[in-house]
């Protein structure tokens, strides 16, 4: 039974009976599992590997609901993906809600429901959480903070560190770029573009697990969220001291995202993704890895977008469709605040 009040009241966060009811009737009902059901102050977790990956993230996206997801689903995907691209298997997450007084109970339930569904899908267990309610106007509707713990296989521990990257290595992405940022923008601003752009928001851990198990040569992975693919690759170039060459024609951009970027003057390479992974692999293994990625539903559109090169060290250069070349910088300024 969902709590009978239609709106969140300050009393829902005061530690008393109403908070107890909210936790029992909403959070435990959707998230329930043997660890959370204990309702201890701290979750006690079995250590399944000698090394753990630990991450935290906060979600302040506006609007809370967007085509392809909502803040609840996004909170799971964002946390899971940070662990997965580090080479870990995501296992446990915490979820804390900071809710503005007056927030609709029905919307909260929709968010909690979708958070629970995504956690089941990603096979992570929500083991602890917290609820705070703040006065009207003191936060914008709802913020979520998460933490996540993942377990490591020994052989996967270096995959986030960008070691052994060499000229000639291929750069692969698992599908179209810029979908999340443009979907949120379209939902937020009053553009009323008819072509629907849908966020790519998805938990990538199953895809990544398959990649790591079947292709030991994966050298680097990162999820290109805020700042987009351009920012991830500029960081990689700076870290390795090598250059990166991208091919504009090879960049997968959906028609809708391409058109929105064209109209608004954005660079798709700078737009955020929430269900994409950028991978570096040796040229020799790239074809094999592509096959593995394409065999997974989240990787059917995987493609090589560029290479590591010896030229122009620490710079990302795009070969344009018209035959020119230009430098692609990290994002400066923020065209779209609060997209995650």
């Amino acid at each position: 039974m969902i709590p009978r009040e239609e709106k969140i009241l300050l009393s829902h966060g005061n530690g008393g009976r109403m908070m107890h009811d909210l936790i029992g009737n909403l959070f435990i009902r959707h998230f329930g599992n043997t660890i959370l059901d204990e309702q201890t102050d701290a979750a006690i977790l079995p250590a399944e590997s000698p090394f753990l990956a630990f991450t935290t993230d906060s979600f302040v996206i506006d609007p809370l609901f967007f085509p392809g997801g909502n803040i609840g689903k996004l909170a799971v995907c964002g946390t899971v993906n940070d662990l997965a691209v580090s080479g870990a298997t995501p296992r446990y997450i915490s979820v804390s809600f900071i809710i503005e007084e007056g927030f609709a109970m029905r919307e909260l339930e929709m968010i909690v429901e979708s958070l629970a569904t995504e956690a089941r899908h990603a096979q992570v267990t929500i083991v602890t959480g917290d609820t705070k309610v703040v006065n009207k106007g003191k936060c914008d509707k709802l913020f979520i903070n998460t933490a996540g713990i993942g377990m490591f296989r020994k052989e996967d521990m270096l995959v986030g560190k960008a070691l052994n990257i060499n000229p000639g290595d291929a750069i692969i992405i698992n599908g179209t770029i810029g979908d999340h940022g443009m979907a949120v923008m379209n939902a937020r601003e009053s553009f009323n573009f008819k072509s629907p752009v849908i966020s790519d928001c998805a938990s990538l851990n199953h895809l990544i697990r398959r990649m790591l198990e079947q292709c030991p040569g994966v050298k680097f992975m990162r999820d290109p969220t805020r700042g987009g693919v351009a920012t991830v690759l500029n960081e990689l170039a700076a870290k390795t001291g090598l250059g990166i060459e991208l091919s504009e024609q090879a960049l997968p951009v959906s028609k809708g995202v391409g058109a929105m970027c064209e109209i608004l003057g954005f660079e798709p390479l700078h737009i955020a993704n929430e269900g994409k992974v950028v991978v570096v692999v040796s040229e020799a293994e790239s074809r094999h890895l592509l096959e593995i990625m394409k065999s997974h539903p989240l990787g059917t559109q995987s493609t090589v977008i560029g290479r590591i090169v010896r030229d122009h060290p620490m710079k990302v250069v795009l070969k344009t469709a018209t035959g020119g070349k230009r430098i692609v910088d990290s994002l400066t300024g923020d065209p779209l605040p609060r997209i995650c």
Binding site: T320, T322, G323, G324, K325, R326
Partner: peptide, 8 residues
């Protein structure tokens, strides 16, 4: 001009 490298 610059985006498409027309000068060249």
């Amino acid at each position: 001009i610059h985006r498409f490298g027309l000068n060249a």
